[in-house]
Design a protein around this nucleic acid. Sequence first.
DNA 1: TGCGATCACTTGTCTGAACAAGTCGGCTCC
DNA 2: GGAGCCGACTTGTTCAGACAAGTGATCGCA
Lengths: 250, 250
Amino acid sequence: MGTARYLEIAETLRQAILGGELPVGGRLPSESALMTRWGASRGTVRQAVALLGSEGLVGSRQGARRIVLSRERRHSFAELNSFAQWARGLGLAVTGRILARSRRPATPEEAEGLGVTEGTEVLYVLRVRNLDGEPTMLERTAYAAWAAPAVEALAEDCVSIMDSLARDAGIVAQYGEHLIDAVAAGGMDARLLGVRRGSPLLRQRHVSRDQGGRAIEWSDDRYRPGSVTFSTSNSATAAPLGRRIGDRAV
Amino acid sequence: MGTARYLEIAETLRQAILGGELPVGGRLPSESALMTRWGASRGTVRQAVALLGSEGLVGSRQGARRIVLSRERRHSFAELNSFAQWARGLGLAVTGRILARSRRPATPEEAEGLGVTEGTEVLYVLRVRNLDGEPTMLERTAYAAWAAPAVEALAEDCVSIMDSLARDAGIVAQYGEHLIDAVAAGGMDARLLGVRRGSPLLRQRHVSRDQGGRAIEWSDDRYRPGSVTFSTSNSATAAPLGRRIGDRAV
DNA sequence: TGCGATCACTTGTCTGAACAAGTCGGCTCC
DNA sequence: GGAGCCGACTTGTTCAGACAAGTGATCGCA
């Protein structure tokens, strides 16, 4: 209906791959076969398979048929930026508890992430997130001043802040940048996540931006060891992930 | 030259963004402006800006001009799969030392990563990699049997195995899948990287595949804390990164 | 002055066509 | 039986045109 043609084609192929009808290592139907089957032009078909390529599901080389690379589910953007949406997509129960919520001046790191001058007032929120009842992630978020009132208006037991902001305040995250590394659990981390001090934690620092590119939030999320793994695929023409040295941008 | 038109256009725009001529938050030239300037059709121009979009440099919404999201360098595929190529691109000195190299049956994890049955013979290589002289990464790699002879033919002090394989044996990595998490340094990890036992290490497990989708190698790389950070960008239409729970595929 | 409607501009989607370049299987020839 | 060639098939790149849909600034009206 409202969905674009190429998205329909892509979704059908995606389901065929995920469902195993198109086995990993096997070949995708040729473009002309898909054109016939869908009554679409070649451009539209290519748009569909290009999407699957960017998701890491299929690969291609000139002259040879496309091959299925993986049947791993890649999550949508919203699910990467929102822990709750991701977990819900997997059928896991998410709960959370806000431990602190206050306005205070931005730390140097928060200021840099949000792109504001140091000391600008931000709304700081500290939350523990549970997966199926078990503490899994510790989230320290700084919301930009312009978004703060909308966040403060939300209920304390709000499961997904980003969800609620989109629904109630029309603040929609559209772009994100992420930094991933490992850190040792500090005293507070250890206590709140129920692990020993010094345990390795997977840390994801990220900034979310709205459609205009304005920073909404800067967040430092720490995952309990063994609980969550990040996954990605790449191909010679698409490298979604880079490395950094220390904290220097490269 | 030999390069495609849309790649030329994309490279010019990329340089303008990286060089700061197109500031972050600013607007990209419209498609019609680019068509005029390059004498190209709209399809070609759109192919160029779509590439920048997939790199996280620009974002777009229907009706409004594209905006510059970031001036961060994203590395090419080869640099993500090859530590040496990545470091060289940054002007860092890479050295390495092979600590062990032997044929032995695949462990269950290696077998799964390579897609072979457990116990199949693989070539196991343990290496320490130094960045500017400092031990930074510990690499445990299992090469598939069909690629093993080519690896064994390489010199012991070979800086980049993947580079040499491509040049000498025609084995070129084309696709990759990566899992990223945090682990505590074991006794061997600690000794070889010069950190305390239990220090948090950033772990990247990955499999590299050739153009036909055959697995070349399965590797478990561990980075010293504070040395390297992974970075990625996403937008509403492109999510290059997913999460996993534990080791279950989701 | 404030507010809504209009309109030019911009991006999203789709079509149909053409040529280039690479792959793969089958065929012939030795 | 094996090596090499060839041709059908497939993907990569580019072009020109069309309509839909959303944005943003201007203009006019109250």
